[in-house]
């Protein structure tokens, strides 16, 4: 069951996380200016998105998000086409479904990361979702909902080639979580030419026999 923070707790932890991320993670003169500003501002809800509204019925309505917020989901909706590139189906509806399913598996995976790494990811996602830091640190001007695949790709390239290790780390975190959740999923195995577990073994092993 997702934990709903009361509005005031929510705000406190958002600004606190953001502050501590900036302090421990990014530090440096470049970002100090944003700290005081972001700390005072209130923003996006960080409670898990537990279920998407009717508009987003493309998501499996039975899936309960445990970690990702609506803001995070928009972030991945913007990033996944750039991360997965030509591995995504071309047909728009199929593409939307695949992106949606991948985001669910990203959420399920992060749930198992446990509290410490969740906290780090929360700081990263908040920083990317929060308007001011999105613009100043990620240098993405539109909100993620309006980001084109080219803009998302340019952002990923910036973080990949940056000489600041922390951005490289952010790049790896975003792409690795996405790539693993995508290519590891049975329905996408063919995209890496992986035929799955040997059929002869599946035929005879007891764990694959239906109860």
């Amino acid at each position: 069951m997702p934990n709903h923070l009361s509005p005031s707790e929510g705000l406190d932890s958002v600004s606190l996380n953001r502050r501590s991320f900036l302090r421990t993670g990014l530090g440096g003169a470049l970002f100090l200016g944003t700290v005081s500003v972001t700390a005072g501002l209130s923003g996006c809800a960080t409670a898990p998105a537990d279920r998407l509204g009717a508009v987003e019925t493309r998501m499996d309505a039975r899936y309960q998000f445990q970690f990702l917020t609506t803001g995070d989901i928009e972030l991945f909706e913007a990033l996944l086409p750039a991360i997965l590139g030509s591995a995504l189906p071309e047909q728009p509806n199929a593409k939307r479904m695949t992106v949606a399913g991948t985001i669910e598996r990203i959420d399920a995976g992060i749930h198992k990361f446990g509290p410490a790494n969740q906290k780090e990811l929360r700081q990263l996602f908040d920083l990317l979702n929060f308007g001011l830091t999105r613009v100043t640190i990620a240098r993405v001007w539109p909100s993620w909902r309006n980001v084109t695949t080219e803009q998302a790709d340019a952002f990923l390239e910036r973080w990949r080639s940056s000489s600041i290790g922390l951005f490289n780390n952010g790049y790896m975190a975003l792409t690795k979580i996405s790539n693993v959740a995508f290519y590891g999923y049975q329905e996408n195995w063919d995209l890496s030419g992986y035929p799955g577990p040997p059929e002869w073994a599946v035929q005879v092993l007891p764990q694959f026999r239906n109860v």
């Binding site: 991360i83 030509s86 790896m172 996405s178 693993v180 290519y183 590891g184 195995w189």
Partner: peptide, 20 residues
Amino acid sequence: PAMSAGVVPGHGDTQAKNLA
């Protein structure tokens, strides 16, 4: 596949081609 996707860094069409 998941192990390789985690080990081989990259994104976009190039990554899709590499993993294919």
